[in-house]
Design a protein around this nucleic acid. Structure first.
Lengths: 140, 140
DNA sequence: CTTCATGCAAATAATTTGCAGTAAG
DNA sequence: CTTACTGCAAATTATTTGCATGAAG
């Protein structure tokens, strides 16, 4: 799994134990808050400081290793950078799941971009609702 | 303009001077941060406290009078609740503009919802990029 | 070696809370 | 009247910063 080393170096960042550990935790959970990363990471590496997490999240977002997913009514979560996708965000349990962008949205956006003279750099499509799991739980 | 009184009452909230004032500021700016609301509002009503702004934003979001628009790398902005639309968010100047959801996206989402058994309650489509104004400014 | 990253503690910023006083309906 | 709202100050939480030490390349 540790080709995070390559990823970091290609981004001009040193591959420290702390960064690799943070990346592994994010990968494991898919989408995770800073606070949760901190709690998870310090199980293995108790001396790792919050300041280090903040500094690293910021620099890894700047270098497009990570992506911030801001969430209505909650703290932002972070995910590994990957090709465009949508988020299904459950407002009950807070889980975030990725889904491919439906065919067609690309064209719509491309059109909008040209018509608007808006230089698109990033899109975030976030669908909020109740996941099937929480719906089942509510039905009992 | 002050049919915010009706809006608030229908939502079960008292129509205080402070709330009306906050709503007018949000309407005037379209999309605005809590901090900016505070600065704007205290020009007219210097004794209005930040705590009041926070409490009111929270309760008006809960009652669907307002909508939070979380923004990557920045504080959330708030807007009056209105029918679904997209946001064009300029990463240079921070401006947010509304655009109608392109025809077609509704169907895509409806389909996804059924297929996923995900009970959709809200969608946020945020397109980040550089607005035409900032592109021109950069070209000089 | 040299540069960049870490960890700590302190500083700052953001948000929340409790409560006594006030205004809305 | 009665309930909900405001404003203040204090408490809490979140984030940032500076700097001496340590690790990566």
């Amino acid at each position: 799994m540790s080709d995070y080393v390559t990823l970091l170096k290609e981004s001009g960042l040193k591959a420290t134990f702390q960064r690799l550990h943070i990346l592994e935790v994010i990968d494991k959970y898919g989408h995770i808050t800073i606070e949760a990363i901190y709690e998870e990471v310090r199980k293995v590496h108790p001396s790792l400081s919050v300041a280090t997490i903040y500094k690293n999240i910021i620099i890894m977002v700047e270098n497009s290793v990570l992506v911030e997913v801001p969430i209505v009514g909650n703290k932002s979560k972070y995910e590994l950078a990957k090709r465009d996708h949508m988020h299904l965000i459950c407002t009950e349990c807070g889980e975030v799941e990725d889904r491919p962008c439906s065919a067609g949205t690309d064209e719509i956006f491309a059109f909008l971009t040209q018509q608007e003279h808006f230089k698109l750099t990033k899109q975030q499509i976030n669908l909020y609702g109740i996941c099937s799991h929480c719906q089942e739980a509510a039905a009992s």
